[in-house]
């Protein structure tokens, strides 16, 4: 099937079978490899992308479902000023270790930071509950997000 959508602001058109998941279209067909494969079952968050601005698991959505929508991946977010600041904050705070979960975390927190300008630590933790990290113990991730939120308020 022919599917058209906006990928990081640019229109793309792909011919895919209906049973192809968005993660595979991005990674294997379009070479967009920022979203990672960690479970392929909506359990870990490494494949998170934004669909019309909202975080979703790209492993658990069919590519045909995003026809006509806008998809943002870490590649697009990294080119945005706010996204860049988030990534820098993650790096500076030590919120990145192995880095495999990080694109997913930056993507989720980009949506969070974009929509909310005042959140408590507990709320940040709630918004990132769907992204698992096995290296950091989450503390520095929460700090990295918090820093960007408070710098936005200034």
């Amino acid at each position: 099937m022919k599917v058209s959508f906006k990928l990081n602001g640019n229109p793309v058109e792909v011919e895919v079978p209906p049973n192809e998941i968005l993660l595979d279209t991005l990674r294997l067909r379009l070479g967009v490899k920022g979203p990672k494969r960690g479970c392929e079952r909506a359990e870990c968050g490494t494949c998170t992308v934004l669909l019309d601005g909202k975080p979703v698991y790209s492993c658990n959505i069919l590519t045909v479902q995003v026809d006509g929508s806008s998809v943002q991946t870490i590649e697009g977010i990294a080119n945005d000023e706010l996204g860049r600041r988030l990534a820098e904050s993650f790096s500076k705070e030590g919120a990145v270790q192995c880095g495999f979960c990080t694109p997913g975390f930056v993507t989720t927190s980009y949506a969070l930071v974009k929509s909310l300008h005042e959140v408590s630590d507990e709320q940040i933790k709630k918004y990132i509950e769907g992204n698992l990290c096995r290296c950091t113990g989450y503390k520095k991730i929460v700090d990295a997000i918090k820093n960007v939120i408070s710098s936005q308020r200034k």
Partner: peptide, 9 residues
């Protein structure tokens, strides 16, 4: 329920 990513869909 679930996570933000799932609740969005």
């Amino acid at each position: 329920m679930a996570s933000w990513q799932i609740r969005n869909i």
